[in-house]
Simulated assay, not measured.
Amino acid sequence: MDFRIEWPAPMDNSDWAMQEMKGWIGGVTVVWDGGTRVFEVYDPVRLAQTVALEIEQIGRFTARSLLVVPSVTRESIETAISAMADRGFRE
């Protein structure tokens, strides 16, 4: 399936290095024939920290379209989204 990834902002290698260190990026939009989804992308460590903090502060954690990848790199995100596209975004 053909798809297009729209990043939240133009990013160079140093921007990607910063995102990988943060372990999180929001506003990753995927567009394909018949659909659009905006993902919040986390690595497992940052996700656990965010969940724990939000539960402590507000008693819950919510995320609309959550994508967890081994590390928040362009390659990891593109690989995960490509695998989802192979399944018609039915996950």
Rank of each mutant, 00 (worst) to 15 (best):
S14Q: 10
V41L: 02
L47K: 03
V41T: 08
W7E: 10
R64N: 13
E6C: 06
P10I: 09
A63K: 04
W16N: 08
G26T: 15
T36Q: 14
V72Q: 08
A9N: 11
G27L: 11
G23C: 02
M18D: 07
T73E: 04
G23R: 05
A9S: 12
V28W: 01
G23S: 06
R4L: 14
D15M: 08
G26V: 15
F3L: 13
A17E: 14
D12T: 12
L67W: 03
V72N: 09
F39P: 00
R64S: 08
Q57L: 08
R60T: 15
A63D: 07
R37M: 05
N13F: 10
N13D: 15
Q57S: 13
T73N: 02
P10F: 12
M18A: 15
T50E: 15
L47M: 03
P8G: 14
R64K: 14
I55Q: 09
G59S: 06
V28L: 00
S71F: 06
E54P: 00
V38H: 03
V51P: 01
F61P: 00
P44K: 05
W24F: 14
L67H: 01
M21H: 04
E20K: 12
V68H: 02
T73H: 03
D15C: 08
L53H: 14
V28S: 00
F39K: 02
Q49H: 09
D43W: 03
T50D: 15
S71H: 11
S14A: 14
S71Q: 13
S71K: 13
Q19K: 15
A48C: 02
G27R: 07
G34W: 10
R37D: 07
E40S: 12
T73A: 08
D12F: 08
R4D: 14
G23H: 05
V51R: 03
G34S: 04
E56I: 01
V68A: 04
I55L: 04
R64Y: 11
E54F: 03
G26E: 13
V30M: 12
G23T: 06
D15P: 03
V28T: 11
F39L: 09
I5S: 10
R37C: 01
Q49N: 09
V72E: 10
I5T: 10
G59H: 07
F39R: 02
E54Y: 06
E40R: 10
I55F: 00
A63Q: 08
G34F: 09
A17L: 10
S65K: 09
V31G: 00
R46A: 04
G26N: 12
F61G: 04
I25C: 07
T73I: 06
P10N: 13
L67T: 00
L66R: 11
W32M: 08
I5Q: 13
G23V: 06
E54R: 10
T73Y: 04
L47A: 07
P10D: 15
G34Y: 10
S71A: 14
M18V: 12
V68F: 03
S71T: 05
L47G: 06
M11Q: 09
P44L: 03
N13R: 13
P10L: 11
A9F: 13
P10H: 15
P8T: 12
V45W: 04
Q49Y: 07
W16S: 06
L53P: 00
T36W: 07
P70D: 14
M21G: 07
R37T: 09
N13K: 10
T36D: 05
R46N: 04
Y42C: 01
V45E: 08
G27H: 07
V68D: 01
I5K: 12
D12V: 07
D43T: 05
D15F: 05
V68S: 01
I58T: 12
K22P: 01
